[in-house]
Each structure stands twice: as structure tokens, then as C-alpha cells.
């Protein structure tokens, strides 16, 4: 870790002023990912602006029937918030599928969106990495890439986004509220994270002088037909090889509305409008789910070491949609997959 200055922001406006005035500064909230990266010299801020005590830690109902989640609500509190558990159990389930309780107690909602990839080469400062050092090359393309992307990758970067929570937020059509020097704006969740292209060092469309203030979820919570299924190398406390968030509205056996988002397969939570459209109006049964899975994976390009992810994703999609249709969501404690 390199030495840095430490300062506390007194309010959101102060935080924006401080970050705009110092190009080497970073915000710190939960710190669980940033401090980890600083210890490895991957992140090297010259100043940390502590925003952890700003009053952005409430969950409030919106006029349109949704919820506005303060950016500093800890992940654990969000997963166990009565309104989230009741109306957005997909979000609760996805959060509990990630990290450990200690980390969920620290990590903030906004910080979860901004966590960096866990690609081993990104962490290893002795190796080239376009995300860490633009233009230096990608060590994963010809390296050990079992955990890497099968969708939306580029020749510059094949890293995946590590979050579980974001997969659910993508499926729920959340909105990210941010404030910057030029004022406040709202970013649809699908536009928040970026594909790597030739600028993999830029993870999101959040401007350098902007701060996330809240995440809004719309009224539709899919509390009846949902499931979050996470497949990983060990039963708990590991990043996803493939994860699936599925949410359905079903009437008389016919799918009226469908949401499908994948984690562990791309540089951002992966949604496919075509796959979701193919589910609408169809019977809630295996054949429909298989068609959607095939559509979503039609452009999948596995790396040298992760052919298996394509078939794993296909099966996980079908299984998760089945769980959602049956109203039997995946338990995050008993890992038996029904």
C-alpha cells in the first residue's frame, strides 16, 4: 500500500467537491474491495475520501411503488430488510449468495456496484493487464482463463464482473442515482456497467467526479416466481462460475413477463432482450426455458479453459427458470439443487 491522505466528506456536495479537486483521490465506504486492492498495489489512491458516515443509509418507498435504497446501506442490512425480503426476495437471495456475513456487514450497496474484477492477472502487478495498466496486454487471453467471460469479451479483456447483487439488480431493472459536479442524474442499470471493448480500465459509466447516492428498484418485484442459482467451485464464499437470476410472471401456465440475468459470464451482469422476449407468451415449461437458454448463449465464445461454462450456463438457466416457475427458489443455505 502506498501512503495516502485521509479526509472525511461532510455531505454529498462536499464529497463531490473533494473528488473533483483531486484526481488521485478515491471514495471509501465499506472498503472491503478497495483496501484489498490497495494492499496489493493494484489501487493506488493518494487520498481516501471517507463517505461512510454520509446519511445515505435508508430504504424508502418511492411514489411509484418501488424502493429507493441508499448507497451506504450495508449489503447484510439490505438482504434482511423487511421490504426487500417481502417484495424483492430475488435481491435478498442474490446478496446472501455472495461473500461472507462479515463482508456483507461492511460492504455498501453502492460499493458493490463498483467492485473490480477478481481476475488473478488484474491482481498480480507482475503481469500485464489492460484493466490495471491500459495498453500492457491481457494475460488471461492466453493464460489460465477457466473463470473468465464467455459473452461480450474483447481481445483486450476477458474479465468477469464478480457481483451477485448486481445480477439481481439487472434483472429487476434497477436505476442508479448519482450526483456529480454537473448535478444529479439517473443511470438505467443496464447502462451502468460497460463491456470491456478496448477500454477495459473503465468498468462503469460513472464519471470520475460522480458519487452513487441511491439504487432504485421499480414496483415490480417478482416475489412469487423468482430464483437465484449460483454455481461455484465450493459450496459457499466463492465467486460464481455461472449464476442466474430468473424472475417470471405467470398466468394460467403462460409466461407474461420474464427477466433473466447471468453473473460470472461477462464483464457486466448479462441480460438478453431476445431471450426474455422468447419466453413471453410461452408455456412455463422446459422447452420454453431451453429455447431461451439457447438464444441467450447463441453468441457464447468460451476461452481455452472454460468450454464447460456454456453447457453449465444452459443447464443453470433452465434449472433456475424451472425453480422460478414452480415457486421453489434456490435456498442459499441448503445447497441441494432441486
Amino acid at each position: 500500500m502506498i501512503p495516502f491522505q485521509y479526509t472525511k466528506a461532510s455531505d454529498v456536495a462536499d464529497a463531490v467537491r473533494l473528488i473533483a479537486a483531486n484526481g488521485g483521490a478515491k471514495f471509501i465506504a465499506g472498503g472491503t474491495n478497495l483496501l484489498d486492492l490497495m494492499k496489493d498495489n493494484v489501487e493506488r489512491p493518494t487520498t481516501l475520501i471517507d463517505i461512510s458516515r454520509l446519511p445515505l443509509n435508508s430504504v424508502e418507498e418511492t411514489a411509484s411503488g418501488g424502493l429507493r435504497i441508499g448507497a451506504l446501506v450495508p449489503n447484510a442490512d439490505l438482504a434482511w430488510h423487511p421490504l426487500i425480503e417481502k417484495r424483492y426476495p430475488l435481491l435478498s437471495s442474490a446478496i446472501l449468495a455472495g461473500a461472507s456475513q462479515q463482508l456483507r456487514n461492511m460492504a455498501s450497496t453502492g460499493g458493490n456496484l463498483l467492485q473490480r474484477t477478481r481476475c488473478a492477472y488484474f491482481y498480480d502487478t507482475a503481469t500485464p493487464c489492460n484493466k490495471r495498466q491500459p495498453g500492457s496486454g491481457c494475460s488471461a487471453v492466453n493464460g489460465v482463463n477457466r473463470g473468465h467471460a464467455i459473452l461480450g469479451a474483447s481481445t483486450s479483456c476477458i474479465a468477469t464482473h464478480p457481483s451477485d447483487m448486481c445480477v439481481a439488480l439487472a434483472a429487476l431493472d434497477a436505476t442508479v442515482h448519482v450526483t456529480g459536479a454537473k448535478g444529479a442524474r439517473a443511470i438505467p442499470f443496464a447502462d451502468f456497467h460497460r463491456l470491456p471493448g478496448d477500454t477495459p480500465h473503465i468498468d462503469t459509466n460513472l464519471a470520475p467526479d460522480e458519487i452513487i447516492t441511491a439504487i432504485e428498484v421499480p414496483a415490480k418485484g417478482f416475489a412469487t416466481h423468482y430464483s437465484y442459482l449460483k454455481i461455484r467451485d465450493r459450496m459457499s464464499y466463492a465467486f460464481a462460475l455461472v449464476s442466474v437470476a430468473a424472475a417470471l410472471e405467470i398466468k394460467n401456465g403462460t409466461i407474461e413477463e420474464a427477466r433473466l440475468a447471468l453473473g460470472g459470464v461477462a464483464h457486466k451482469p448479462w441480460r438478453d432482450a431476445g431471450a426474455e422476449a422468447a419466453l413471453r407468451g410461452q408455456p412455463a415449461e422446459d422447452a420454453s426455458f431451453a429455447r431461451a437458454a439457447d438464444l441467450l448463449l447463441r453468441d457464447a465464445r468460451p476461452q481455452a479453459h472454460n468450454d464447460f461454462k456454456v453447457d453449465l450456463a444452459r443447464r443453470a438457466i433452465i434449472r433456475t427458470l424451472t425453480q422460478a416457475a414452480h415457486g421453489t427458489p434456490q435456498s442459499q443455505s441448503n445447497k441441494t439443487i432441486q
Binding site: 472491503t32 447484510a76 461472507s100 456475513q101 463482508l103 461492511m106
Partner: peptide, 23 residues
């Protein structure tokens, strides 16, 4: 020292956290 093992777990304001990942 990276939040992966839990050996540093303490209770802060009653909540368990990894003390290695906070300043």
C-alpha cells in the same frame, strides 16, 4: 490480511466484521 480467512473477525458496534479490511 485480505478478508478471506476470518481470523481477524471482531464485533464493531455489535456486528461482526473483518478487522483487516477497515481502517
Amino acid at each position: 490480511d485480505h478478508g478471506q480467512c476470518g481470523a481477524c473477525t471482531v464485533l464493531v458496534d455489535g456486528r461482526r466484521i473483518n478487522s483487516c479490511l477497515t481502517l
